Computed example of a mutant assay.
Amino acid sequence: MAHVKIYSSDFCPYCHRAKALLQARGVTDYEEIVVDGRPEVRAAMAALAGRTSVPQIFIDGRHIGGCDDLHALDARGELLPLLT
């Protein structure tokens, strides 16, 4: 199984939606980094992703993007191959 890292916020519905999709695709163990109240962590995420919004998702070090990007990848049938 691939290593999945997700930068998220506890109050973000898109974060919850992205995590739900990952779980539906069999990802039960992922690294979650919560950025709430941690501006240095959000800044580090922005430096990696080039974006300041959450979620920001990485699979095996590859930046996937946010929730909509993750769902689009899944709709094209490209998510599962990345996860296995």
Rank of each mutant, 00 (worst) to 15 (best):
A2Y: 06
A2E: 06
A2K: 08
V4G: 00
K5F: 07
K5E: 15
Y7E: 04
S8C: 08
S9A: 09
D10I: 13
D10Q: 14
F11E: 13
F11G: 06
F11M: 15
F11N: 14
C12F: 04
Y14H: 13
Y14T: 05
C15E: 03
H16C: 09
R17D: 08
R17I: 05
K19E: 08
K19N: 08
L22F: 07
L22Q: 02
L22T: 02
Q23V: 14
A24S: 15
R25Y: 12
T28L: 15
D29K: 12
D29L: 11
E31Q: 10
I33A: 06
V35C: 05
V35M: 05
D36C: 09
R38V: 09
E40N: 07
V41Y: 05
R42F: 06
A44M: 11
M45L: 07
A46R: 05
A47R: 10
A47W: 03
L48A: 08
L48N: 03
L48Q: 04
L48K: 04
G50C: 11
T52V: 12
V54P: 00
P55I: 01
Q56V: 05
Q56L: 06
Q56S: 07
D60E: 15
G61A: 11
R62H: 15
I64A: 01
I64T: 02
G65W: 03
G66I: 00
G66P: 00
D68M: 08
D68K: 08
D69E: 09
L70G: 00
L70T: 01
A72F: 12
R76E: 14
G77I: 05
L79M: 10
L83K: 02
L83Y: 01
T84M: 13
